[in-house]
Nucleic acid binder design. Sequence first.
DNA 1: TATTGTTATACTCTATAACTATA
DNA 2: TATAGTTATAGAGTATAACAATA
Lengths: 153, 153
Amino acid sequence: MTSPSAAARKTTSQEAPVGLAAALRIAVLRLSRRLRVERSDEALTMSQLSALSSLAHEGPCSPTTLAEVERIQPPSMTRIIAALEAHGYAARAPHPSDGRQSVIAITPAGAEVLEETRRLRTAWLVGALEELSPAEREQLATALPLIERLSNH
Amino acid sequence: MTSPSAAARKTTSQEAPVGLAAALRIAVLRLSRRLRVERSDEALTMSQLSALSSLAHEGPCSPTTLAEVERIQPPSMTRIIAALEAHGYAARAPHPSDGRQSVIAITPAGAEVLEETRRLRTAWLVGALEELSPAEREQLATALPLIERLSNH
DNA sequence: TATTGTTATACTCTATAACTATA
DNA sequence: TATAGTTATAGAGTATAACAATA
């Protein structure tokens, strides 16, 4: 299905939006493939960058909390944090009162690389977005919170 | 970044839509995670289903053509086709005039499972979409072709 | 020589199960 | 006993490099 949007649009206002679901699934798969390929720098992977971004947003928190925010399992987060620590972009401290927990915090280097990587990493996507018209970018921005709501369903 | 849409909207109509790019990247990563998790049946993976869908859309074609349509490298497509053949959902025939090429075609069983899996696989997403209003689904359907254009950039 | 496709290998991302340490 | 986190292991998905067969 090279262009599933026709089927998507057809069923939009119907009661069971199966066509829209199928088209969205494929569109998201393909764009995520492209985004993985188009990371030119080798510093941070997408998952690491997303976790670092969440860490900046949440403030210092436990690995489990971060796993919940990222909607992955704790063992997966263990590996991501290990990579961020190895790069010096996150630091671990013991929890003041609960010896089982760790507190993960973003480092100044992490905050710096986050800002810089955001610029570099999104360069391809920015280039692609610049080929859309302002009105089309507005349509995309309108749809983004809807996609976020789907992820939280 | 739990809700990047505010930043996204803010920069939408500016010349360099960096905020929109960053938000879209994260939204796509998270929704693709959810979609991977929410495949309850174990019959076909997302990549296999997408390839089978492309095969149905393109008609019989070579592995290289299919790899180009799916925007992955030929060795990756080799594995996907092998899985589809093992399931009996795709069949391989020699090219009539070029001995180097194979012609891959979807089988009746493949077409059947494609239709059935589409229904089952998208059940979660359909459920999520049904919590949007018809107007919001319309907004999403409007944005979908834009996402497709980004993937083809 | 150029093209098609496969095999070999490696890396990322993620999961579940089992374990340790602490509460 | 329950919770936080790690380690061990496995599987999907993808890539590059090297190869074989054919044009």
